[in-house]
Design a protein around this nucleic acid. Structure first.
Lengths: 240, 240
DNA sequence: ATCCATTGGTCTGTTTCCAGACTTTTAACG
DNA sequence: CGTTAAAAGTCTGGAAACAGACCAATGGAT
């Protein structure tokens, strides 16, 4: 009912509650597999510094995730907050519920955003001269996805996509791509990992890498666009 | 000396101090010309809500900008916080100082980021079917820039660039483009608005709009990339 | 078996930020 | 020339977040 803000620049300064925001962040890092099952988060003091919050607030968040069985916290030397969560067996989740949790408009927003930033990142990377090490990283990540066990697929797929942004050397761009990915993670986790889809994605991934290594920004754009369009279509398909 | 955070997802939750952050935001909105000279900010209560902060904090920020002669605050009905700032006459600022204020690495980061998100936005828009109203907005903004008085040039140029993102309908993408632009504003404000540059930019702007209206994503990408490359080169040129 | 570095757990005082009620000023309007 | 609505200005109590010191447990190293 309220008129929406007309000045897009005057958007929120803080996303709200520091505690909730932190829980969200950690949860996403866990779900994305940035910190895999069995690994542990950095020590509280260090993590609090990275997140720019106080240790108290961080501890509240960790406690919440512990109560929700995402983390197992052990004290003493060599202790820490260990990830207990395992990605749900594919197709288990309820996609419709996940969508409802984020809102229909937000879904289109997120998909559009992701399309833009990932295409942009691929173009930038394809326009740059890469060092052998960078080329190695890229092909390595590609191979990782292709060799992935089903339970690891999403995590390594994420890592592959993010590595494109990371290799541009722009931390702003990396953050944007990470953010974009985060916004669709819950949805992706809710749909099954089907063999035909994996094979299809694998071909597209290869096309993306080829275009980048060939320094062909246009082809890179097209490849990423097609790939993401496929994912978006898959999502929409499961919704109808 | 400290090892930089290896987990890009565990980036700061809050950008620090709410007051300072708010000052920065408002200042940027003013410098970008989102709120032009002589206009006023939204009423405190409304603005505080939009920014997601309390009125008290907002007032402190406004007070600071008032002290720094960016705003003139008048009370009573039809009062408000009026923008007093006028964009510096082109070429007045010291580019080197502006660059030093942001750091060399950050400059490349910002330019890369901008390249990626603006290219991405143009592609997305060029891939979409536009309503007549949207087409009208785009051509209108283009005309605005071309007819701009020198003192208004930067502001309308910003508005043109942002409208591309806005027309995609993705608020995340719009925010990203706004953020990217903000990060180079100070630099752009520090270099003169030269006639040859304007004419060059004008041709490129037209090419961008043509490509979007022709629904040609590849051409749109190329046009935006060329345009931004030109700006980046201009900036780098003034630095050497 | 003991040591001790490293890690989580707790406590205290302070600062920042907020929500909301209330006051004052102002300029257009009747 | 008063009325009035919309705006800024002020005040208070409370919640959230922080900084930093200190305690407690744990397990590898000696």
């Amino acid at each position: 009912m309220d008129a929406p803000p007309m000045l897009p620049l005057l958007r929120p300064v803080r996303s709200g509650n520091a505690f909730e925001e932190t829980v969200e962040r950690l949860l996403q890092a866990i779900k994305l597999g940035v910190v895999a099952h069995g690994e542990k988060l950095p020590p509280e003091r260090e993590l609090a510094a990275q997140l720019g919050i106080s240790r108290v607030t961080l501890r509240e968040a960790i406690r919440a995730l512990q109560d929700a069985s995402f983390l197992d916290v052990r004290r003493g030397r060599y202790g820490g907050a260990f990830v207990v969560y395992e990605p749900p067996s594919p197709g288990t989740g309820d996609l419709r519920r996940a969508v409802k949790a984020m809102g229909q408009g937000d879904l289109e927003d997120a998909l559009t955003f992701r399309m833009a930033v990932e295409c942009g990142a691929a173009e930038v990377l394809a326009s740059a001269e890469l060092t052998p090490a960078q080329r190695g990283t890229l092909t390595r990540r590609l191979a990782d996805v292709n060799e992935a066990a089903p339970s690891e697929y999403r995590r390594l797929d994420t890592a592959f996509h993010l590595s494109i942004a990371e290799l541009t050397g722009s931390s702003l761009l990396t953050a944007a791509c990470a953010d974009a990915r985060l916004r669709v993670t819950d949805l992706l986790n809710a749909i099954p990992v089907l063999l035909p889809n994996i094979e299809h994605a694998s071909v597209q991934h290869a096309a993306i890498v080829d275009a980048i290594l060939a320094r062909d920004p246009e082809a890179a754009r097209r490849a990423v666009a097609e790939h993401l369009e496929g994912t978006a279509a898959l999502l929409r398909g499961f919704l109808s």
